[in-house]
Amino acid sequence: MYQAKIYITLRQSVLDPQGSAVTRSLHAMGYENIKDVRVGRYLVVEVDAAGREAAEEQVHDMCKKLLANPVIEDYTFELVEV
């Protein structure tokens, strides 16, 4: 059994209105050294797969089809055996 920790954020080329608002808020609080904030989603997915490679392939597939929207979003994930 594997556990995929999937991180989805807006692509760098896409303006992130939530991230901008959080950045401005942090600046207002005095954290002036904060250069950028990207807000995203975090998913934990349990995958019952025969091996690491199969699990990885499946997670990529799911990210591309449903979990992330490739037009505006990037995804990364960590896969750990559990």
């Binding site: 807006l10 896409v14 303006l15 992130d16 209105p17 939530q18 608002a21 929207n69 037009v71 505006i72």
Partner: peptide
């Protein structure tokens, strides 16, 4: 294309 959150949030 795709939809993002409104810029005003």
């Amino acid at each position: 294309g795709a939809m993002r959150r409104n810029d005003s949030l």
